[in-house]
Structure formats: C-alpha cells, structure tokens
Amino acid sequence: MLLTLQRMGPGRYVLYAITAIAVFYLLLPIVFIPILSFNASRWLEFPPPGWTLRWYEQLFTEEQWIGSIWNSVKVAFLVTASAIVLALPAAFVLVRGKFLGKTALNAFFASPMIVPVVIIAVALYGFALQWGMAGTLFAFVISHLILALPFAIISIGSSLQTFDIAYEKSAMICGASRVQALLHVTLPSIRPGIIAGALFAFLISWDEVVLAIFMATPSLQTLPVKIWVTLRTDLSPVIAAASSLLIGMSVLLLGISALIKRTRK
C-alpha cells in the first residue's frame, strides 16, 4: 500500500513534487556557484552580462590565493596520512579486542563528532597561542586530524567488522606468520575501508573551516580561510572560482569512493 509505488494512488505525485523541489534546492548552490564563477560582472550580477576566465586567472596567479591552495593540499595530505596511521591499529583494537570498557572507548573515539567544532576550535586556539603554534602547518594538521580521525576509524572499523577472521586463521594454518597474514590477507581485504577512510580524512581536512579560522594567521592560511577572510570584506568573484575548486574536489573524491564501492560488489 503506502510502501508500494503502484498502489500509492495520486498521493505519490505530492512526494514526487516535494522531492523534485528538494533536489533542486540541494543542487542549486552547487551548480550556481560554478556558473557564477565565469560571470564577467564584478558584482555578480544575475543574469550575467558576459563570461570570463579572469577570476580563475586571479585565483591561480595571486600569491595569497595560490599559496592558500598549496597549504590546503599540504595539510590535507598530512592529515590523511596521519589519520590512517593512527586509525588502522586503533580500529583493530576496537573491532577485535576483548577488554573492559570497549563501549566507552568506542564512544571516546567518536566524541570529536559530537562536541561542537567551535568548542574544539577555541580550546585549541588557547593552546596554540600559549605554545606559539598559531599559524603553523603543525597546528592545522593537529586540529584537522581531530575531526578526521573518527571518520577514518569508523570507516576502517566497519570494513574490518565484515572481514571474516576465518581468512586470517586459514592463512596462519597455511604457515603464514601473524605479520604475513596481516600483510597478505587482512590488509588487502580491508583496503576499500582504508581508502574510504583516507578519502574522508582528506575531504574533511580540505573542507575544514572553523578550526582553520582559529589556527590561521595572515601569513599562513588554507583555502577555506582565505575564502572566509575575503568574504568578510567583499563578495569578490574570485571566491566563486575558489569555491568551484572546492566543489570540484568533492565531486572528484565522492566519484572515486562510489567507483570503489561499485568494484567491491
């Protein structure tokens, strides 16, 4: 009846309509910004009086913009690498380990997802000021890592959960040492989870705004910080170009993760 398409009756057109509106609502900004980034008008007039690549030229040539892009890339790669290095062994403990307080430990590793980011940001800001870490690459990596780590652990943990431990046992009875079984059997089997975790970690770092705003100094900014700072002074169309770059990265990484999911099946 209500869960079968054919028998829903005319009521289903209401659902179609609302979903269509919602999809339009969800797509509007993502499609609108890249279009706007080619707008020739300095004031983002709509409809655009003409088209230009000027804003992209500015984005990729102006020292501050291109520098912030490079900083974002550097930070994101460092965060991804550290997240996987920390999350991989932790996920093994959380999935395989038998110990008291396992639920509590799980909750602890997920807690950065629950605490409002602004609180983590000001807390770290206090530390950064005290230890002179504000505006360093290190501060960016540490702060982004706090948010990326839970995602990496969950991602790796869930693929480890579905991995049948009998594979590892059969590798060991075949003569493989613990390390050999891990390297040749377990890690290749959970690779999709590791890659997904890495993609999430990268994207989280690449997109992080709140923490970055507090870690940044005028001399060291990531791309979202540069957008934020620029945004507060004017609505320069370069922001639209930079935003399109961020949207493109999301599309790319989500595409890759969808591709991995498909090949896994």
């Binding site: 594979y167 046992k169 003569g175 089997s189």
Partner: peptide, 20 residues
Amino acid sequence: VIPSRRNIGMVFQRYTLFPH
C-alpha cells in the same frame, strides 16, 4: 606451538579463499 608452525592443513566450512 603457534598454528603457523604446526604444519597442519585445514579446510574450513566457509571456503576462506582469499578473494583478492
């Protein structure tokens, strides 16, 4: 003796062939 040093073969109910 740990399993890998026992020189025993084993076939499991689930085939446990390494999928990759």
